[in-house]
Amino acid sequence: MAIELKQQKKGVIQLAIQGELTIYSVLEHKQALSPYLSSAKDIQIDLADVTEIDSAGLQLLMFLKQEAVSRGITFSLSQHSEAVVEVLELLNLSKHFGDPIVISADWKSS
């Protein structure tokens, strides 16, 4: 499983997605993440180890955000990996997710 549950306490869920977040894995990811949407009050997803993300993966993040908002769950992304940032910047979605993005100095500029 490419999702690691880092912490779960008092409805605050901290998750980390690892490896690919692409069309090949989105179904699996959605199935793994959906249960938290009905239990958690606060979901934080660490994207540091996402090596690759495509449109399907991005769409899944948008979906999670929409679900969270409609259920009144706090939702945040953190530790965006280079691949994630590239896509968010390309699609002008950083503001949509509204999470602070830390750009590492050793990323190649893209």
Partner: peptide
């Protein structure tokens, strides 16, 4: 110059098939 990414018809909950594409730009 500017790009707007939207998923105006993104279904909720189980109706959403992550392998479907709902994206508009």
């Amino acid at each position: 110059k500017q790009i707007l990414t939207m998923a105006p018809e993104l279904p909720a909950g189980d109706d959403m098939d992550p392998e479907n594409c709902y994206l508009h730009f």
